[in-house]
Amino acid sequence: MFEARLIQGSVLKKMIDAIKDIVTDINLDCSSTGISVQAMDSGHVCLVLIELGSDGFEPYRCDRNITLGLGLKALSVVVRCANNDDSITIKAQEGTDNINFVFESPNGEKTSQFEIKLMDIDSEHLGIPDTEYDSVVKMPSHEFQRICRDMSQLGDSIVVACTKDGIQFSASGDMGSGKINLRQSSLVDKEEDQINIELNDPVHLTFALRYLNYFTKATPLSPTVTLSLKAESPLCVTYPIGDFGSMKFFLAPKIDD
C-alpha cells in the first residue's frame, strides 16, 4: 500500500506545470524515505530530478518500494480539477494498475476522487556524479526567469560567465547583443531577494535558452533558484520545494564545434 497526502495540493500542480513541456511520462519512485522522479527529455539534453522527502506528507505510508508510471497529460488533466487550497492524497495498491487521487477542501466539505491508469515506462536511470562546482549562484527565481526571457529575444544561446566581479549573462544574434551583470548583494531586506555568489574558479559556459526557459516554468515553486556551474559540465538549476524537497534540472552545455 502506498499513500501520501500533500496538504498544499497546489505544490503538485506547480511541479507538473514545470516539467510538462520537457517530458511526457514519469516514473514516481516511492520508498519509505519519500518520492523521487528522474526523467530525461527525448533529445537527451536535459534531465529533471525531483526529490520529495516523506516528511512533506501527512500521512505518508509506503510498505514496499513501488514505481508508479504516469503519463503527464492525464496527470495534468486530473490535478487541474483540484482547487489550489485542496489537499491531494495519492494512493496506490500493490498489484493494481491504477493510481488514485483524492482532493479535499480545507473545511472537508468537498472531496473528489480520480483514477488514472498506470503505465509501464521504460526509463533510463542515470548516475549523477557528486560534483564540486566552480561557482554556485543563488538568486531570486523571478530574476532568473526575466533574464532568460529577455536574452531569448536576442539569440538561441546564453553565455554564463562567473568571475570575481559577479555573474554575467550574455546573448547575441542577427539583431544585436546584450549583457546582464549581477553582483553579490550587500544589504537586502528579504533573504529571498539576495544574490549570493560562491566562486571557487572562474567559469564560462554556453547553454541553449530554449531549455532554460522551460526550467523557469518552475518559478512559482520557489522565490529563489540556485545555478551550479562547472567548466565543461552540465549546469544544475535547483528550485527548493518547501523545506522537504527540490526540483533540479541538469542541462548539457553547448560546446565549440
Binding site: 530525461m40 537527451h44 539534453v45 536535459c46 534531465l47 533510463e124 536511470h125 542515470l126 548516475g127 549523477i128 556524479p129 544561446s157 554556453t206 541553449a208 559540465s233 552540465p234 541538469f250 542541462l251 548539457a252 552545455p253 553547448k254 560546446i255 565549440d256 564545434d257
Partner: peptide, 14 residues
C-alpha cells in the same frame, strides 16, 4: 557556433 552536447556524455546510464 557552439553545438549542443548530449547529457549522456557526462552522466552514465545505470
Amino acid at each position: 557556433t557552439p553545438i549542443q552536447n548530449d547529457l549522456l556524455e557526462y552522466f552514465s546510464l545505470l
